[in-house]
């Protein structure tokens, strides 16, 4: 499990590879907060390579969403598979996040 960060135009794109769970959620949080600290304001988290997400991972996404918004920024999620969509629907977090089917659509939505 790891996270890779790249810049695409003015958007920071984070790929979550493997699981987003209690054991690695702080790593994701810190990486995004570091970029926010540097002045970045547009963030896209891509889950196309993600296995499963636990409640801690969901909690970190909520936390990042709040912190990014507080700084006047925007967060988009993309490429949730059907199982991950179900997880977001169960927790109603699909109503909290802007979720795009593809990375391209997410990038266009900023």
């Amino acid at each position: 499990m790891s996270f890779s960060i790249r810049k695409q135009a003015d958007v920071v794109v984070v790929d979550v590879e493997g699981q987003l769970i209690v054991g690695n959620r702080q790593e994701l949080k810190q990486k995004v907060l570091d970029e926010l600290e540097k002045g970045e304001r547009k963030f896209l988290i891509d889950f196309s390579q993600t296995g499963y997400i636990d409640s801690s991972g969901l909690g970190v996404l909520v936390s990042l969403s709040k912190k990014i918004r507080e700084q006047g920024g925007e967060l988009r999620l993309a490429n949730l598979n059907d199982d991950l969509k179900t997880l977001f629907e169960l927790t109603k977090l699909d109503t909290l996040f802007q979720i795009a089917d593809t990375r391209e659509r997410a990038l266009e939505s900023f």
């Binding site: 636990d54 409640s55 801690s56 969901l58 909690g59 970190v60 909520v62 936390s63 709040k66 997880l87 169960l90 927790t91 109603k92 977090l93 109503t95 909290l96």
Partner: peptide, 17 residues
């Protein structure tokens, strides 16, 4: 955790899930 007052909480979803 799905109620409007709890939706922005970072914790509280474990047992629910």
């Amino acid at each position: 955790p799905t109620s409007p007052e709890n939706l922005l909480r970072e914790d509280g979803r474990g047992l629910f899930l």
